[in-house]
């Protein structure tokens, strides 16, 4: 009888003690077999929906497998959007810090390429996300097959018009391979349709104000507006909350709100979250096997309109 009472006392005390001990010492980190791989992701823009989704994908996948492969990822964003000088400086910092891999959005700026080459020469792994870099040494590209995306855009344009129209195109900035590939895809898609006239490409420099100036200017001549990257669609979605009459159709990339209120008629939606996840998965693959699963990892794209919005976004 007494013995039973003693056990009834000892058990809760022991449990409480063990809980306290676990609480005190559970933050002890243990590193696995793999040495630490320091990865720096330089994102060009702190937006709400595109690069932020890539960042989410990276962080969530890192949380999932980062500890297993001992991957430490640091995400750095320049103060100014798409500021190549700042991104180059950040890249140089990473070279000085001798990180193991850098993840960047490719661009053709000579200084950036020079710094990137320096990183490569130092033995750092180069991973381009969203945008590849032309004719660069061994590296990995993860992102949309931009030529195919442009082609999808062109085909949808053909489906919508079927008559003589002038198409105004606003892109981001010269020197970005992804935008050039998309433009090439659009052009190739409509090349057999002479009634569809592609006007000269305009650049908004990823700036909403510049885009709106171009928007106002182009509608005098163009029937259809095609935005080759997300800035145009984002800006229109923020400024207007209903369909406008300046253009017969407005098509773009990677914007959700504008589709819902029909300010934009159709967009090519890239799977940015998948891009982020793939970055971490491929780094883990490299740690594990010493090579990537492929030199180019293409992520999914979808054509989104008002009609299929709920289904696709879901």
């Amino acid at each position: 009888m007494i013995k039973k009472q003693v056990w009834l006392l000892i058990i809760p005390i022991a449990m409480a003690g063990l809980s306290l001990a676990y609480f005190c010492f559970n933050n002890t980190e243990t590193r696995e077999v793999y040495p630490v791989t320091r990865v720096t992701v330089i994102l060009p823009h702190d937006d709400d929906g595109y690069w932020s989704e890539i960042a989410n994908g990276i962080q969530e996948e890192e949380a999932k497998i980062g500890e297993e492969y001992n991957i430490d990822i640091s995400i750095i964003i320049p103060q100014l959007n798409y500021n190549i000088a700042q991104m180059t400086d950040i890249l140089k910092q990473q070279i000085a810090a001798q990180v193991d891999a850098v993840v960047i959005q490719g661009n053709e700026n000579p200084e950036f390429r020079l710094a990137l080459q320096g990183a490569y020469d130092q033995g750092m792994k180069i991973i381009c996300v969203d945008t590849d870099i032309k004719d660069f040494s061994e590296h990995l590209y993860i992102g949309t097959d931009n030529y195919e995306a442009g082609k999808m855009m062109g085909e949808k344009l053909i489906d919508l018009t079927r008559r003589a129209v002038k198409v105004g195109i606003i892109s981001g900035e010269p020197g970005y391979l992804n935008l050039e590939q998309r433009l090439e895809g659009v052009r190739d898609a409509v090349k057999d349709y002479p009634e569809i006239e592609i006007m000269d490409v305009q650049y908004d420099n990823y700036d909403g104000l510049t885009f709106m100036n171009l928007y106002q200017k182009l509608h005098e001549t163009a029937d259809i507006l095609v935005c080759l990257e997300g800035t145009g669609g984002q800006t229109l979605s923020q400024i207007y909350d209903e369909r406008r009459s300046e253009y017969e159709y407005i098509l773009g990339f990677d914007v959700n709100i504008g589709i819902k209120n029909q300010v934009i008629d159709g967009v090519v939606k890239q799977d940015t979250y998948q891009m982020g996840r793939q970055v971490v998965e491929e780094i883990a693959e490299y740690i594990k096997t010493g090579k990537y699963s492929s030199d180019n990892i293409f992520t999914d794209i979808q054509w989104v309109t008002f009609e299929n919005y709920d289904e696709v976004i879901k």
Partner: peptide, 17 residues
């Protein structure tokens, strides 16, 4: 003892320096 990315980066940068 306890990995901290910022310290690792700083140390490597100092080594480069």
């Amino acid at each position: 003892k306890k990995f901290l990315r910022e310290t690792a980066d700083a140390n490597k940068t100092i080594e480069t320096y």
